[in-house]
Write a protein that binds this DNA or RNA. Structure first.
Lengths: 349, 349
DNA sequence: AATCGACCTGTTAGCGGTAACATAGCGACA
DNA sequence: TGTCGCTATGTTACCGCTAACAGGTCGATT
């Protein structure tokens, strides 16, 4: 048998009316006190607060939102929570929203367009104040919903394509090109690519496209590739590295589509006495913080995740504060290349 | 200027009335069609669906929830998203809830009780169908809110203490004892502990308590300790290991409060030619998957994270389906010890 | 003393749905 | 043919709160 200490268990959830009766003022006045809106005498304010606390009243935002047609939620739609990158984006978002009334609500799509569509529908049905969604690729229906929602929409992570409304991110094509350029400049020639099989990870695809494009300009092409499916993991990186190197032993550079498998590859190379970056150079993508502790620092490219989260949230917050704002902001961040210890600096000085 | 392809931009968001007018039936009938509730002729059903699709109507759950006093949300309140363990719990939760109408909504507390209280208040004000909250320790106000909410509450991760309603987890005291036992059995004597400074991580504290308690029974005590603050990271593990070993060089075992810093320690030891597990044994806590790729497998104890998520969600789902259900379920899972390559098996055979 | 405005409180009418209860149509069956 | 029972649809009354407006009080100002 459950027992609450002070008062009998409420069978019916508490409403403003209960607080109003307990404090002897109208519901409206209670509402004003609880929202700090309008003028209320210090005297009644205290009476009301005391009553509310005493009863353990928690306002019903559903009713409040319906009546005021204001909902302090921001829908955040991302592909995954399990790979460190989106949690960092969330950090940036929370950092900004914590200073406002707004609250993020997360939906996860697992990189499936139809899931995205469903999650989006679900979220929009709560009439949030804004949407932050990863990527520029969506189903037609999803695009239609977003356009019609009449709220600020920020597409994040990627800027290679057309945004519905605002967008914040980096150019993954450019990131791929930049990395290829650094590799070429360092004098590597036999380049292998290791990435995910996921055809729906558009950003990984765009990086790869930029990468090959830039190699092509230097008269090079990817000498061998290896793909995997499933989450990014150290063990996968090891395996793949072993596979690709036994198939094509003369590779002198390995470009990984994310830092995690890159780190696995690094560990593999070190254990097998491969000279990194002399014999083989390595690079990943993301700038994941925890890799700091590895025996050697993997070359990588920072995807500006926290910064993207911040900028996106800021756009939503600004527009929520000032609904007449212009819109269509485009923020393109520049990913910075970190050579680490696994990519030689220039060849020719 | 924004352009939606088909129809003019709706200035006023669409309502049931719009769909009702467009399809020539009453709002009620539209509502029935959209929810698959009650009898509607195939003919009108199609008419209505066509109209809804055509207009791009998205139902307003706020109004629906208010009218039906049913909200298909489950509040999930966790300390952090950035350390791999809670994302895994989320995976378990989603796995179960995906088969129901229910939807998880995540709130993050950053291990701060007052944040927890605020987040809880915020979430309860949406009148969710249930709450899953990490830990058994809450502020008095939070406990009062939870008790009074009149919805299923599942406290997860920990079972060392009193639950408000249902609970699913492992005993961290027991986990600490079990690990200590294995270490003692393997013949280690000079044991160091490396953990978080966070006094509010009650589960880490309980593990430590169980650990020392069990050592004490064997006439041992922790020979040295080292604490850190900030996120778990490989680099931190390295540093701390270096620090503790230079201060107390004769340690023969290092127990880390999580796998991440344990992995950092492992890398440090390997690089410095320390014989693991001969000269020094190592163990962490959590069974984090990605560590699979490390040069050597760290001894650890599985915290049953996915399973905890599943069980908790199942309790909420069951009670949502059958509101008269009993309640007060207590699910205690048994963490399994993985010796890995860093903890000697028995000493005496 | 009359007027005004600042302050405080209450009243009314929804917000956009849904539960619950009509009502209409229609074939079946005695 | 009247009545029953079923399906298909409509009507009404809220759900709990807030916007908007309508007082009432009271000291200050003219």
């Amino acid at each position: 048998m459950t027992q609450t200490p002070v008062r009998p268990i409420p069978k019916r959830p508490l409403t403003l009316r209960d607080v109003s009766e307990a404090s002897g003022v109208s519901e409206m006045t209670v509402s004003r006190v609880l929202r700090n809106r309008g003028d209320v005498s210090e005297n009644t304010r205290e009476k009301v607060l005391a009553a509310a606390r005493e009863l353990g009243y928690v306002p019903n935002k559903i009713a409040g939102a319906l009546a005021s047609s204001r909902v302090n939620l921001v829908a955040v739609i991302i592909p995954s929570l399990s790979n460190m990158v989106f949690p960092e984006v969330m950090t940036g978002i929370s950092e900004i929203l914590d200073d406002t009334e707004l609250q993020p609500v997360v939906g996860v799509t697992h990189y499936k367009p139809e899931r995205e569509e469903a999650v989006l529908y679900e979220m929009l049905s709560w009439r949030p104040s804004g949407v932050i969604v990863a990527g520029l690729e969506h189903t037609e229906a999803a695009k239609a919903m977003l356009s019609a929602a009449g709220i600020p929409i920020v597409e994040i992570m990627d800027t290679d394509g057309d945004a519905i409304d605002a967008a914040v991110g980096i150019s993954h094509r450019r990131a791929g090109r930049k990395m290829a350029q650094a590799i070429v400049d360092a004098g590597y020639k036999r380049i292998g690519f290791l990435g995910t099989k996921m055809p729906l990870d558009h950003r990984a695809r765009k990086r790869f496209e930029g990468f090959t494009e830039s190699l092509a300009k230097a008269g090079l092409e990817v000498a061998d590739q290896e793909f995997y499916s499933g989450g990014s993991a150290l063990a996968k990186g090891r395996e793949m590295t072993e596979t690709i190197l036994s198939r094509t032993p003369d590779l002198d550079f390995l470009y990984y589509s994310n830092d995690m498998i890159g780190a696995g590859g690094l560990l593999y190379c070190l254990e097998n006495g491969i000279d990194v970056p002399g014999q083989i150079g390595l690079a990943g993508f993301n700038g994941i913080e925890f890799l700091d502790g590895l025996p050697r620092q993997l070359a990588t490219m920072d995807a500006c995740r926290v910064e993207i989260g911040r900028a996106a949230a800021q756009i939503i917050a600004d527009r929520a504060a000032n609904p007449s704002a212009e819109g269509k902001e485009l923020v393109v961040l520049d990913p910075s290349l970190d050579f680490g210890d696994t990519l030689k600096r220039l060849k020719k000085l």
